[in-house]
């Protein structure tokens, strides 16, 4: 058991190093795809923390990324604040908004969160479009980069660090005492409450952390694109993040990572044939949510388990990992 653990750890480390070296062999275009994929890893993994582990659906995840992007971008472009300080401010602001929206509606139950976050994202759009003197509306707000010299390679490592930080936070949370509470709430909130779980507190916490991580992702992304538009907090963006998580595997740790890379890379190829990727992903996500609610990870896992069971002993019950 211990041997296998250490071996897995070495494999993971080796894989990470290989991945970190990958962009050196790629052109600028493919480096860009890697960076965008890493942005989606942050978004999908943090959305999964909420939806996959506590069973709450936020439709405002892209909006929280927008809060982070605009907060940091406006501070940098209008007030000359250092972009790194801006990213921290954007993350904090997203956390504060997440906390407020969370306590406003989470004691009422899941449906209210979904409705309110959708409304929240709409309010944000109205404000961005109305305050065009500050936000430049749909024209987009030009913002400085994170580094004095623009380098795709440097951005790749910044986004890799951001993605690892996000995954680390999610991993620590779900494997802590709180993680037990998260999963209990998702499985059956009434039973959880009867065992002493403060369901509202658990949800508000998950929602706040998830929103803060989205804020960080959005702030970094804005300083990478150098132009912040209402596309960042759009429903299309929200839909992409949701599809990535659902198709990759909601409620599993690696699912969102697989989904983010898979869909971002695929959408670059589909884009060559016109703007069909939203429709294509929508249909696939619909089919997956309907027929394989555990996503790709769930499909791999059940195939693998069946094969292993057949190989070891046909009548033994599955040993859990």
């Amino acid at each position: 058991m211990d041997m296998r653990m250490t071996k897995n750890r070495w494999l993971l480390a080796a894989g990470l190093v290989a991945f970190a070296l990958l962009p050196w062999g790629l052109g600028v275009y493919h480096q860009h795809i890697m960076i965008v994929s890493l942005f989606y890893v942050m978004m999908a993994a943090s959305w999964n923390l909420l939806a996959g582990y506590t069973g709450q659906v936020s439709f405002g995840h892209a909006a929280f990324a927008g809060i982070g992007a605009y907060a940091s971008g406006i501070l940098a472009a209008k007030a000359g604040v250092n972009p790194w300080v801006g990213v921290a401010a954007g993350t904090l602001l997203a956390a504060i908004f997440g906390f407020l929206v969370g306590i406003l509606c989470l004691k009422l139950g899941g449906i209210y969160l979904s409705l309110t976050t959708l409304g929240f994202s709409e309010i944000l759009h109205i404000i961005i479009n109305n305050e065009y003197e500050i936000t430049r509306g749909t024209m987009g707000l030009q913002v400085p980069g994170l580094l004095s010299e623009y380098s795709k390679l440097a951005y790749f490592y910044i986004f890799l660090a951001g993605a690892l930080l996000t995954l680390g936070v999610v991993y620590r949370l779900i494997h802590s005492d709180l993680g037990l509470n998260f999963r209990a709430v998702q499985n059956d909130e009434r039973a959880a409450a009867s065992l002493g779980v403060d369901v509202v507190k658990v949800r508000v916490l998950a929602f706040t952390v998830s929103s803060a991580l989205a804020g960080m992702a959005g702030a970094l992304y804005g300083h990478y694109l150098l132009l912040i538009t209402p596309q960042i907090p759009s429903l299309d963006q929200q839909f992409l993040v949701l599809s990535m998580t659902v198709i990759g595997g909601m409620g599993s740790f690696v699912g969102p990572v697989i989904g983010a890379f898979g869909l971002e890379i695929l959408s670059e190829y589909i884009r060559a044939y016109g703007e069909y990727h939203v429709l294509a992903f929508g249909l696939v996500a619909l089919a997956v949510a309907r027929f394989a609610p555990r996503g790709m990870v769930g499909i791999f896992r059940s195939v693998w388990e069946r094969r292993r069971q057949a190989a070891v002993h046909p009548s033994l019950p599955a040993e859990s990992p």
């Binding site: 059956d188 039973a191 959880a192 009867s194 065992l195 403060d198 369901v199």
Partner: peptide
């Protein structure tokens, strides 16, 4: 609220059981 009553020292079972199915 239920969780606070539980912490006071009252535990209950449900007529139709409510296990956390996906957990061990």
């Amino acid at each position: 609220p239920a969780f606070r009553i539980c912490r006071q020292g009252i535990a209950r079972t449900f007529q139709v059981t409510r296990p956390f199915g996906e957990m061990t």
